[in-house]
Design a protein around this nucleic acid. Structure first.
Lengths: 202, 202, 202, 202
DNA sequence: CATGAATGAGTCTTCATTCAT
DNA sequence: AATGAATGAAGACTCATTCAT
């Protein structure tokens, strides 16, 4: 009969719903993930869902926010490494691990479809920015250490690394034979080769 | 039994609707592209739309089909080039041109959201397969000519080139400062460097 | 190049459309019989259809009118028979023949669904009235000849005969094993027994 | 995990919707009975309708099912009567009562129009079969007791009785002066006369 | 006369969201 | 807190009918 609001219980329930939403969105897309389906997956009533999230997009935002937080953690972790190339390598490792999670690929594609909603776009930009900062920081550090090419700005280098990392995630989701484990090392090689290339012709 | 029908007119109208649909889908996503919006863009009544396409997905399929056809044309064109590396370069050129069309990026993301529909998935696979064949063919030819690395199968090489090309398309759509014109040459360099790399560590 | 309107050709075309409509309506119901389906069956364009009939209901009305005319013909034919009981028997014969036509059952049911439309209701009443007059006339004649029971009014007797004839048509359409040929004689017996019954108890 | 649901309330609401649907379908036909009209009659929102019935046909099926259940009840009731002829008479009584409900006639005609839909056809057959079993059972019993003619199979006798009962229902709906109360006794007489007739000529 | 492209009002149905219990 | 019944705006699609050729 304890009427005390239990913040832990509340947070746990919130996470369960987020998890259910991630699963459903990943497998059926954002639009296909009806609130009813999410509630079924989370084994709750529809009313409960709206107790925790004022709106359907809000779960999506919560998921994205979680992602941004994870990047922030990675950033802190990586900042402690003395070798910037090792840091970059660690970032690539994380990308490989992420790509290995089946839900992530589906989720990324699903989110792309909702990008138009202002709030989602903002959250995605936050995510993107977090990623960029993580990368830019280390690439800049590596360049300062003379380990990275100088014919392109750090910004452009970052964009190209992101391009490859995102493409990797997408291809994993697209092509069954293309697996995170099998291709991870090639990914590392390409990114590092690119960053350390002597000179781009033309 | 009068022959009132003008097949040309019919085809022209069909293309106009396809074009309107491409515009709307690219900017608002597949779900956001209501048939009403497409009709408004094409300046036709809703009935007319369904006169040309039995279903909303069918326009999407028509667009994808057009894309597949274009790839087929490129394939024929490229087959005539004697230098396989020039062929690959031509394919990259086309990717850069495609990325320059503002609608394409948005469209690609929009389609991803509907991938679950069987018919769309099939059309996408057709597209993907056409792309692969185009690339595989030329990469194999280039390798036979001793111009491409031999430490990975032609299949894997193709996957990686696709990865980069797709990532390029996506990044153009994502990052305003990242333009097809400005980054096209880097794209070419990365792809060619990758294909001609001496050896991958591992 | 004869620009003379050919009334025969016109009427022939009209009848072809009516026939197609009867076929389609009988097998798919009035609502299921889209003008498009009727046009396909008649092998004409939709524009042609509306050349001959201002409205979809009008074909239905034309069909019903044809039916009413047929009843009128039967009426004339039967008026020439000297024996009223033979006349009634001839009417029953016609009912059996009608029931044998597969389209008629389906059509009758289809029409029932549209009864609410004022114009259709009117046409149906015309049909019903024609039927009634045909029957009433002969039953009255037979009663005058002392061959029919006198404990019910001619009107009521007619209603009951219609009830059985309509029920017959419907059951033929409903129950596959219940055929016009197999049950025709029972029909005749029931109707004649009913008309000639000595006395109804109560 | 609170148990907010009140199954009784749910069932009551369901029945209210069914009742509204019966009213509207009977007076406007199945097609004319738009879901909007049914909702207006039931004083509910369109969403509520689809909360209780996944599809428009499903209300129709529910109504038919209710009818089948009523027949089953009648069957049990009638099985307790020791005199088979009294049982048959009770069945006729029920037919007269049914015909007295103004909506039933309209409803029967309305349903005929949708017979093509597989699910509806199945439900109608279930209804028809229930009716037949009810009748066949009692007619067989009466014949075993030597009270019914033997020149036709029980099956055929049943078909004919159904024919007359259905025709009765239909005529009541068609002819304003032909009322269930006024003609009920004639119905009983005709059916019983038919069943007990000495011999059919043929 | 014949055609079929064009039209848009009208249907069914979905789904995020509210609210009384 | 939790529930699920109720809601209605919005969307895809159908089809009778018009009209320029």
């Amino acid at each position: 009969m304890a009427r005390t609001v239990d913040p832990e219980r509340h947070e746990a329930q919130r996470l369960r719903i987020i998890d259910a939403a991630l699963t459903v969105i990943a497998s059926r897309g954002y639009r296909g993930a009806t609130t009813a389906a999410i509630c079924r997956e989370a084994a709750i009533g529809s009313g409960t869902f709206f107790h925790y999230f004022p709106t359907k997009v809000d779960v999506l935002l919560a998921i994205l926010d979680l992602g941004t937080q994870e990047v922030a953690q990675l950033r802190e972790h990586v900042a402690e490494l003395s070798d910037p190339m090792a840091a970059i390598s660690a970032i690539i490792d994380q990308a490989i691990v992420d790509a290995g999670d089946e839900r992530i690929g589906g989720f990324v594609q699903a989110v792309a479809a909702v990008m138009r909603e202002a709030s989602v776009a903002a959250a995605l930009q936050a995510d993107e920015r977090a990623q960029r900062e993580l990368l830019t920081e280390q690439i800049a550090r590596a360049r300062a250490a003379g380990k990275v090419r100088t014919d392109m700005s750090v910004e452009r280098l970052t964009s190209w690394v992101q391009l490859v990392l995102d493409g990797f995630l997408e291809r994993i989701a697209t092509e069954p034979d293309f697996t995170a484990e099998g291709e991870g090392e090639v990914l590392r090689a390409i990114v590092l080769d690119f960053l350390t290339a002597e000179q781009t012709g033309r």
